[in-house]
Design a protein around this nucleic acid. Structure first.
Lengths: 222, 222
DNA sequence: ACTAGACGAACGATCGTTCGTTAGGCAAAA
DNA sequence: TTTTGCCTAACGAACGATCGTTCGTCTAGT
């Protein structure tokens, strides 16, 4: 295998609740692996059908087109990502610091748990036309907005201190996104270590105060 | 145009010193734009030739194959990126903090100045076979290693404090990489602001001490 | 007269997709 | 129990289109 792989992960696995039983599930998983490794245009229907143990014609008994499969994968990926961070944030304490930690932990956990899904959903979404892609695109915006709102609340309360909220969203979101490309289970750091460390990095980026007090002025503590 | 574009930039421009005169340059620039927007497999030779104002057959008078064009773009992109950060670091003060600032500034500047080149060089490199891709892959490793070495020196001198040097490389490098996808010249932040802010974020991630002194113990300053 | 660059036409291969057919499991009828 | 009919899933074969690439020709400049 070439040294310059697109992502480190080698096995495609789909969340059980999103994987249909039987052939549709096999097709979805095979397409996920090939789209992640070679890109949408680089994976042919014959490759996908072959990897699923079927002939190309059988595919169309389960899905209307190649583009619909990609749309399904993008939707699943973004839905799961958004679900993960949303639940994590809602379950956490109302403090912006705790919410950022919860968000980044869940965000990183998604990218380490389902790297192929993350790679496909994020870097092949542009292939989808308006009709099939807009729903997924909305999900992506919601996820970004959730992070942006947490940061804005932290800025308002004085818990955070950054010159530009959107740049912080881009930086924190971006460093998490890239995890899907290099992380692999047999790596020398565990997924938990990555999540924990990245959560700490996010707090540092935001210059989060260590305690629960706000920051009205300089060194007013104690 | 679709709402879900692959990257925000709309114009492909190549550094003058890397753009050959005449048709080869036109071809290279057209391929850059189309590879960035649609991906390698999604852009046909007829599309590229047409965008360059030529017919497909003329292409082969200047380049031996489609893959060679991608290889050339990847090489140019990684060479320019590595050159930028290397010169910046060598021109800066020997302090790890100053070197990190120089590195991140140059890294971000490359991704804002040549977003299409960055997108192609980073997300289409996997298409290249061993023969055409290995040289570029080496450049990428050198660039990462330079950042890693700066961080390690900062850790050794006590200027930085992170639990894992490699995770800091991945985080700082990753957030810079993503800039190429969302930055556009007509954005509400300038390239300089992005570079400056991201350099500050990098220092925060590394928990850099503010002064030139090392950190033998807690609050020994003054 | 020579050369370099652009061209039209076409090559075989592969693309996504369609169509008519076949095999197999299962329920109702004999 | 056997037979019949049906329904689903899978299939082989092929469609037109497009893919990367090649080749022989033509034209403009020296």
């Amino acid at each position: 295998m070439a040294v310059n792989r697109r992502l480190a992960a080698t096995t495609a696995h789909l969340l059980p609740e999103h994987k249909p039983p039987g052939s549709p599930g096999q097709i979805l998983e095979a397409a996920l692996k090939l789209f992640a490794e070679r890109g949408y245009a680089g994976a042919s229907m014959r490759d996908i059908a072959g990897a699923a143990g079927l002939k190309p014609a059988t595919f169309y008994a389960h899905y209307p087109s190649k583009e619909h499969i990609l749309a399904e994968l993008c939707r699943i990926g973004h839905e799961e990502q958004y679900r993960g961070v949303r639940v994590a944030v809602l379950d956490s304490a109302p403090d912006p610091r705790a919410q950022i930690v919860a968000y980044v932990r869940a965000h990183v956990a998604f990218h380490t748990s389902y790297p192929m899904l993350a790679v496909v959903a994020n870097s092949e979404l542009h292939v989808l036309g308006e009709a099939l892609g807009s729903a997924t695109f909305t999900l992506r915006q919601q996820s970004e907005r959730l992070l942006g709102d947490i940061i804005q609340r932290g800025l308002d309360s004085g818990a955070f201190n950054v010159p530009n909220a959107w740049l912080a969203v881009a930086a924190i979101g971006g460093m998490g996104l890239r995890v899907a490309y290099w992380y692999s289970p047999e790596y020398h750091v565990t997924a938990e270590q990555v999540a924990e460390t990245y959560a700490e990095y996010a707090l540092r980026i935001l210059a989060a105060t260590r305690d629960g007090a706000s920051r009205p002025a300089a060194k007013s503590k104690k």
